[in-house]
Structure formats: structure tokens, C-alpha cells
Simulated assay, not measured.
Amino acid sequence: MNRISGPLGAQATDVEMNAMRYKFVSEQVSVFYGEKKVLFDVDLKIRANAVTALIGPSGCGKSTFLRTLNRLNDTVDNCRISGRILLDGKDIHSPDLDVVELRARVGMVFQKPNPFPKSIYENVAYGPRIHGLARSRSEFDAIVETSLIKAGLFNEVKDRLHEPGTSLSGGQQQRLCIARAIAVRPEVILMDEPCSALDPIATARVEELIFDLKENYTIIMVTHSMQQAARVSERTAMFDQGHMVEENDTDVIFTNPADNRTQDYIMGRLG
């Protein structure tokens, strides 16, 4: 079980008030697996309704950081976190914060499409059912249709909703997973290399979807593709060897980075 220092008190400090201007704020966040420190004192502010890309070489800590934002690292044995992570100014490790509620607010889309072994309809309806977001069949129907529309998939599957989700193509499966995440009405969508297993056409569809979704969701995306980060994100954070090297507007990171490690990574000389 993870432990994190610094739960919020009754009175909001200046730090908490400042954090509320952002969707997420990480403050001196470090991650340990046993005695091994893999993430070092990360300070990062994530803007609401924008796409933030996390880039850097393999093993640099970007996916580890992403998983701290919805406490997925809680499931890893001997994992310990220090520092503080605020969501809308509230410490996500506060004793009165429900982890199930947190993961409904902060959805996750993984590298490899992972639809449930259920129908397309039930893949999307599953989350709303366990969270009690709908009661009648008509309410479930509306959530499923709306989620599939937002994920850009409804027109392709509207006549086959009761077929297995695994019967879809890889790109369609990934959009189904995005629809599944959207269905529980999250505020944030975490994406861990969502296009790495997809062909170029499917990747383009998912990138178009990400661009559309940012109007209503905060999106934080790990990607190894510099071109993808440049195409879809407003902000980019560079990681290397467990440290966050720098963070800025994406065009600044790619045209005038402040750190040589960022320049070396973008030019293919690092990682």
C-alpha cells in the first residue's frame, strides 16, 4: 500500500489555492519500488481542458508518473510515494478521498487495446452500471450511444452493438476503450501510448479524437512519437532518468528547449 506525505488540512494554504487554478498539480513527487527510487521530486502543473504530452526515453519515468495521477501504483507491491498530488486543489491521498471515485474522475486508456470479453454495448455500459450512473435500459442506451459518438465509433458499430468488442479492428478497439472511459463521466483521461499498437490510419483517427475530446476533458498522454506530441498537445513535459527535465508550451519545447537533454532527445541523440 502506498503512503504519501502532506494530506490537506481544514484550511487551504496558498499552495492549495494556487493548485485549484490547474487540474492537477504535483509537488515534489517521488516514487520508490522497495529501496529503489525511480521518480525524483517531480513538480508539474497540468492545465485543464488541454492535452499535455509526456515524452522521454524508455524507462525515464513518464508512465510511472502518469500512473500516480489515478493511484494505479497502489496495486504495485512495495511501491511508495512521497510528495503531494492535487486534483482540483484536493490531495488525492487524503484519507477522505475514495479511490474508486478518483478512478472514475480520472480515466485510463492503455497502450494495448483491452476491451472486456463482452459485447460492444456491455463494454461501454459496464462502468456506469457498477458506479450506479443509470437505472433503466433507456438510460444505459443513452450513455452507450453518447459515449460511442464522442469516441467517433458509433456510426461504425451501431448495427452490431451486441457483437463482441474483441471482434473490432485494433483501432476500433482502442476507440471502444476510450468510449468505455468516457462513459463514467471522467474529468481527466490518461493515455499511456494509446497509438503505439495501431497502424497509421487508426493512429490518425485516434489523434483526431484526442483533438476533439480536449474541449471537454483534460488529457495527459505518454507518447514516444515526437510527431504525435507536436500534433496533438498544447503542453509537453520532458522526462529523463526519473527526473522531469522541463515543461513548456509544445512549440517552445520543440523549437527552443531550455535543456540540452530535451534537444538531444528530439534530435534522436538520446534514448
Rank of each mutant, 00 (worst) to 15 (best):
T223G: 07
A10I: 14
M238T: 04
F254L: 13
D199L: 01
G171F: 04
I219G: 06
T166Q: 11
L133I: 06
G6R: 11
V100W: 10
V15F: 15
T75L: 13
D91F: 03
L86W: 05
I55N: 07
L54E: 01
R135M: 08
R129K: 15
G127Y: 10
P200T: 06
E234R: 13
E208I: 00
P95N: 02
R129H: 11
F154K: 02
I201Y: 11
I178M: 12
G242F: 09
H93C: 15
I266F: 07
Y22I: 11
R3Y: 15
L102R: 12
T68E: 00
V232R: 05
F40C: 06
R47Q: 14
L198R: 01
M244H: 12
R261Y: 02
Y217P: 04
D159Y: 09
A229V: 09
L133A: 02
Q111M: 04
I149F: 03
T236V: 09
D251Y: 13
T236Y: 12
A151Y: 06
L209F: 06
Q174N: 00
I189R: 09
F24P: 06
R137S: 08
E215S: 15
D199N: 04
K158C: 11
Y121M: 09
L97Y: 14
D159W: 02
G152K: 01
K112C: 05
F239K: 09
F65G: 04
A202E: 06
A229M: 10
I266W: 07
A125I: 01
V42R: 00
K23D: 11
V144F: 08
D98G: 03
G171C: 12
D96N: 14
M244K: 13
V29K: 08
H243L: 06
N49D: 12
T75D: 08
H162T: 05
T146W: 04
S136M: 00
E234Y: 09
Y265N: 01
Q227E: 14
T262A: 04
E187W: 01
A19Q: 08
R269V: 02
H93E: 07
E163S: 09
C177Y: 08
I189Q: 07
R84G: 09
S147A: 06
E247R: 04
N248K: 07
P128I: 00
T236M: 02
Y126I: 03
T64V: 03
Y33L: 15
V99N: 13
V100C: 08
H243R: 15
G170W: 07
Y265S: 00
R129N: 02
P115V: 09
F211R: 13
S167R: 08
R269N: 07
I220S: 11
V15S: 04
A125V: 01
V222T: 08
P115N: 10
D96P: 13
A202W: 03
P164W: 04
T218Q: 10
G152L: 13
H224G: 05
L54I: 03
M108V: 03
V25E: 13
